[in-house]
Design a protein around this nucleic acid. Sequence first.
DNA 1: CTGACTATCTATAATAT
DNA 2: TATATTATAGATAGTCA
Lengths: 168, 168
Amino acid sequence: METCGNIGLGFKKKKKMGRRKLEIKKIQDKNCRQVTFCKRRKGLMKKANELSILCDVDVGVVIISNNGAGRLHEFSNTNSVTGILQRYKSHIKEEKEISGEHSKYSSMKIGELLQTTERQFEETNADGFAVTDLVHLENELQTALIQIRSTKVFLQSSVPCPIGIASF
Amino acid sequence: METCGNIGLGFKKKKKMGRRKLEIKKIQDKNCRQVTFCKRRKGLMKKANELSILCDVDVGVVIISNNGAGRLHEFSNTNSVTGILQRYKSHIKEEKEISGEHSKYSSMKIGELLQTTERQFEETNADGFAVTDLVHLENELQTALIQIRSTKVFLQSSVPCPIGIASF
DNA sequence: CTGACTATCTATAATAT
DNA sequence: TATATTATAGATAGTCA
């Protein structure tokens, strides 16, 4: 058996060899790539968590694996800028629960959501801007984005879209 | 001088001591926290880049430092889900160039943008969903989000908002 | 803030289970 | 697939420039 890394040596395996230097390029062996992905993903998340604690900063990490399903992995210590990714994740999870129940947002039609957002924006504008209103708008638009992305994914994969917008 | 890490030993400095184990909690000494932030941020970005190459996956990292300005640092090897953060970054950069010029989007009023998006969505719907249309919608909404976040930041910092929406 | 230096700590490649 | 092991490559704490 050859090494599965990027060294390209042809030697046969020995028991308990330690790590060897790794060239940074795509790992060709599929199995080894998966093992490395599992390890390094875990390591990256750990580093991100440590950085956020040690230095008191907000950190967000997203990883999307191409292997077939395009699975999403993420770390986030906060809910501000990276909050959209958390919501994205929970939305995907929600879709996988093929129970007929939908959240407040996923069961709303996108067109309605846009109209509501538009109306709320104008109302907000009449009284001048308020941060809380903008936060609300932000959430609305993020939700619309999530729905659009979901729809896009389902169209691309030719799978029936389970959320409310199918009724358009 | 004492060590500035999280060890809490009271010994005096010696020349060229190596690293010592670090407890994962907020580093109290401000200077040392900054140095560690600089190092570990760099390390995290490197790891993220390596992971994306070695394992052929999409990786996005965002770091927002609280220290005063709330600066944004990021890594992204792709433009898909994390693309919004890249655009966010470039938008912030653009704002810092206080030249009177605005991009196509930043000079558009949010209300107009929402109406345009709404209209485009309905037109798209008439012919059924198309991925390219959804991509376009996605971009529109992301831009609206960016503007809302910008406005929010400027409101919170009590600084005049330089982009087009101030005319509302 | 960055950039070295160096001793040490930590992550992880190869491998086996 | 995920985890365990072990030797080693790589990251970095403390420090100075």
